[in-house]
Structure formats: structure tokens, C-alpha cells
């Protein structure tokens, strides 16, 4: 079967929770992605906001975006979050930064803000998703 998060086609496999991770620190991204997969999530990894936006323009959808702020390229993680809010309002957003003194972030821009290094990221993101489902 075709991965549901890529296909969206009728009859496609019912996918697990889907996450898009945008992080340019390679080993950190691998670690986060591996952690999420161990939790049964479908994970798509990109190393820049530009790459994430490119992917989202293919109408590929996710339950949640986990993004760093500072990444190489034209757009940064905050630009990516704004893009997602505008074009994929159904997606939850978690923003992470290595700098706890980072510029103030509009609380409407994300459901969760994390300071790196991030531990138990899968548990925290699960709570974001489940919290939303419980609220319905």
C-alpha cells in the first residue's frame, strides 16, 4: 500500500500520527526522528524550512510540525510556522530553539515551545495531539 501521508488516495493505508521534523542539526534530527518512529509515528525529515514548505506545497499533510527556528535558507522556522498556520491550519506546531533567550514568539504561532536539548519529545508531542482530541 502507498503511505497514506503521501498518497491521501482512497484505500490508502491508515497511517499513524504524522510528523514533519524540520531541523538542520543532522544528528539531533535523526535522534528526534528515531524517537518518534519508536513511538509508532510516521516521520518525514527535512533540514530546512524551505524544504519543508516545498514538501507542504505538494499537498502532503501532517498532524504536527516540529521545527527549529534558525536554519539555513531563505525561510526560518518562524516563517515555516506562519506558512503552516496559513495553508495547513489543521496542523499543530511545535517550535524548538537552542536559545532560551530567543526572540519572543507569538503564542498563536505554536501549540508548544521547546528549548533544546529536547528530551521525551515524542511524549510531549503526543500530549499536544491528544490534548486537542480531548478538547473536541
Amino acid at each position: 500500500m502507498i503511505p497514506a501521508y503521501f498518497s491521501g488516495a482512497a484505500g490508502a493505508e491508515k497511517a499513524a500520527r504524522r510528523i514533519l521534523i524540520a531541523e538542520d542539526e543532522f544528528l539531533l534530527r535523526l535522534d528526534a526522528a528515531d524517537s518518534m518512529r519508536r513511538f509508532g509515528w510516521d516521520v518525514v525529515e527535512v533540514s530546512s524550512a524551505d524544504e519543508a514548505i516545498e514538501l507542504l506545497r505538494y499537498n502532503v499533510t501532517f498532524d504536527i510540525l516540529l521545527t527549529d527556528i534558525d536554519m539555513p535558507g531563505q525561510a526560518d522556522g518562524l516563517d515555516l510556522a506562519r506558512y503552516v498556520r496559513l495553508h495547513h491550519p489543521e496542523m499543530k506546531i511545535a517550535i524548538m530553539s537552542g536559545n532560551s533567550e530567543a526572540q519572543p514568539i507569538d503564542p498563536k504561532l505554536c501549540e508548544l515551545f521547546l528549548v533544546k536539548p529536547v528530551w521525551n519529545v515524542a511524549e510531549m508531542l503526543t500530549k499536544v495531539i491528544e490534548g486537542d482530541q480531548n478538547a473536541k
Binding site: F6, R37, E45, V46, E51, A52, E54, L55, V60
Partner: peptide, 22 residues
């Protein structure tokens, strides 16, 4: 990104451990 992600997912579903480099 699109090609890499789809190919990587396919290989994982075949039982491999997959590392993606961009």
C-alpha cells in the same frame, strides 16, 4: 525531500533501518 521520504519509508516497510541524509 519528496523522493527521499517516500523511498526511505518504503525501505523501512521492507524491514531495513534507514538513515536519511539531505
Amino acid at each position: 525531500a519528496l523522493q527521499r521520504s517516500v523511498i526511505a519509508k518504503y525501505l523501512r516497510e521492507c524491514g531495513y533501518s534507514v538513515i536519511e541524509a539531505t
